[in-house]
Amino acid sequence: MSVVGQSTKFSTVALPVLAWLVALVFFFPIFWMMLTSFKTDADAVKPEFLFIFKPTLENYINMTENYDYWRFAVNSVITTVFATAFSLFVGVSSAYAMAFNPGRHTKDILMWMLSTKMLPAAAVLYPMTFLTKSFLNLFDTHFLIILVLSLINLPIVIWMLFTYFKEIPKEIIEAGKMDGCSVWGEIKDIVLPLAWGGLASTALLCFIFCWNEAYWTVRLTTTDAATLSKLIEGNRAPEGLFFGRLSAVSTAAVGPIVVLGWFCQKQLVRGLTFGAVK
């Protein structure tokens, strides 16, 4: 850190102010949304009521009583948790194989996996809908959503884990082999403890992506497996734009993930610094 020591006014005053400004700009829409969620629909569209208004819980009560918020929330939790767990399970196995026993085509496989992320989702909308609805009969099931969320996130999960695993010196794995570790033992006792920070950040990121996914969860569900994304979407369409209600639904949808991120922040930073192998 070459900046340390030269405590100029710029670094002590201007930089933090700048950082706060940037953070505020990013946070403002969310803040606005949270404020709006406590306004009546009538107040919500009036700019003069931006900060001064009569707060109400009406939107939240309405949301839980009339719109079945909890069912959507439970669906979100189920699909996100299982999709994250499944992605990590497949991801850890694949990343282990590719990081420690690379073959001639490992690089190609990694590139190919990344390339699947370049495919526009809309391009496969019709085959996906047709296949799941008429052919596999999986439309609007938890299984389908878990599968789709896992498949969407696997390339990123594998890439991230692969990079973290790569940082573990090969000799440590070899020492494990000399010590008589099985493959599962190597993963459990050596690789995962050493890549713990990486694993945590990968899991969190995967969880966030799964929770926020909207394109497929909206299109491949109706009621049974519908997640919070679908709830937001549903509140937009049928009765026009009721900003107060929409804001309440949105706040309730992003709330859990923001809180989770907030709590894991410490763990993430810890993991990233303690995860250093050397």
Partner: peptide, 19 residues
């Protein structure tokens, strides 16, 4: 398998388990 050969190895980088 390496562990069944009755050999033990000391690595150049020590390769201790850091955790």
């Amino acid at each position: 398998a390496p562990s069944k050969r009755g050999v033990a190895m000391v690595f150049q980088t020590y390769a201790l388990y850091p955790h």
